[in-house]
């Protein structure tokens, strides 16, 4: 990491990461609403815009409905439309801000999700951040299936300078997690991060395997895992809803991390998720660097998404 990027505050980093998504949405909005009557045609355009941001049909429809109720047939500017949208979004997203706390020693954090969502990378970033905050962290490479998954996490563990627990290829993940937890207890760790194998939520055998890992972990403490974090790829569309639903059913997911927000033009799925599940969002992944994992803050997120500031500048 260069000094320049280090010195940037998290807000500007988040802004940078979200720039693409922001500009896409605002460019669109500006072209639709300069100062004209908010009529059905314009509402349809706004709805289309939300749709192409992966907000989803039902939610988009509802947001536009609310907009219509408030401002229909009035002369409006972009800022006004945005302010109205932002208001509604804040009420949806604000309650989801939530940072992790570590009362139990060790606090067990499970990273779960479908293949390629970014679990291992996120595990690496979290380990580094928490270690830097002075926590004693240990990571478990519980993906014993995918080729070189262990090696990948091992590189991250070295970077973060935290101990790594690993098993042989195709060995039993549950047994590995159990023994790692034991080690973690006896070593008086603060945090134990378990990077589980990616699995599609539709593969019932793999979901059963994940349940088993959880069950076995609970033999050492009923409270474990303290956090079961579902890692979601922001690029994924409506299927995200299914992923959350089935993972939650299987292993009682109690928080989300959304990755790859630096590239996607559409962060809209977050609104839909918030609406449907009310699960706290712990972090957003906005880049490849270790510090590119930011706490989720609704106001900043919405401000970025709708980019009120940049509008005033225009």
């Amino acid at each position: 990491m260069t000094d320049e990027s280090k010195s940037k505050g998290w807000f500007s980093r988040l802004s940078d990461g979200l720039k693409k998504s922001t500009s896409k949405l605002t460019d669109g909005l500006t072209s639709i609403v300069t100062k004209r009557k908010l009529d059905d045609e314009m509402l349809q355009e706004i709805e289309d815009l939300l749709l192409s941001a992966d907000v989803g049909y039902a939610t988009s429809h509802r947001l536009v409905g609310a907009l219509k109720k408030k401002r229909f047939q009035q002369d409006v500017t972009v800022e006004e439309v945005k302010a109205t949208l932002a208001e509604d979004l804040t009420s949806i997203l604000k309650p989801l801000e939530h940072s992790l706390t570590f009362e139990d020693k060790p606090t067990v954090v499970f990273m779960v999700g479908v293949n390629g969502s970014g679990k291992t990378t996120t595990t690496g970033k979290l380990a580094a951040q928490w270690k830097a905050e002075g926590q004693k962290v240990r990571v478990v490479a519980a993906d014993t299936f995918r080729a070189a998954a262990v090696e990948q996490l091992s590189v991250w563990a070295d970077r973060a300078d935290v101990p790594l627990e690993k098993g042989a290829a195709n060995s039993d993940a549950a047994a590995l997690v159990y023994s790692s937890y034991e080690t973690s207890i006896s070593e008086h760790d603060d945090i134990l991060i378990v990077d589980t194998a990616g699995r599609l939520h539709t593969k019932s055998t793999l979901m059963e395997e994940l349940k088993k890992v959880v069950r076995v972990t609970q033999k050492l403490s009923e409270k474990a895992p303290h956090y079961t974090v579902l890692v979601l790829d922001a690029n994924i569309g409506q299927n995200t809803i299914q992923q959350v639903k089935l993972f939650q059913e299987a292993v009682n997911v109690n928080g989300l991390i959304i990755t790859k927000l630096d590239g996607t033009a559409k962060a809209g799925i977050i609104i839909q998720l918030a609406d449907a599940f009310k699960l706290p969002i712990h972090y957003l992944g906005v880049g490849e660097g270790i510090e590119d994992l930011q706490s989720f803050e609704a106001a900043a997120f919405i401000e970025n998404l709708l980019s009120l500031k940049s509008l005033v500048d225009r």
């Binding site: 749709l51 192409s52 941001a53 992966d54 479908v114 390629g116 790829d233 690029n235 994924i236 569309g237 409506q238 299927n239 995200t240 590239g263 996607t264 033009a265 559409k266 799925i269």
Partner: peptide
């Protein structure tokens, strides 16, 4: 990824 959303277009 076949699960990709609206972003598929731009990407």
């Amino acid at each position: 990824d076949s699960l990709i959303g609206q972003e598929a277009y731009t990407v």
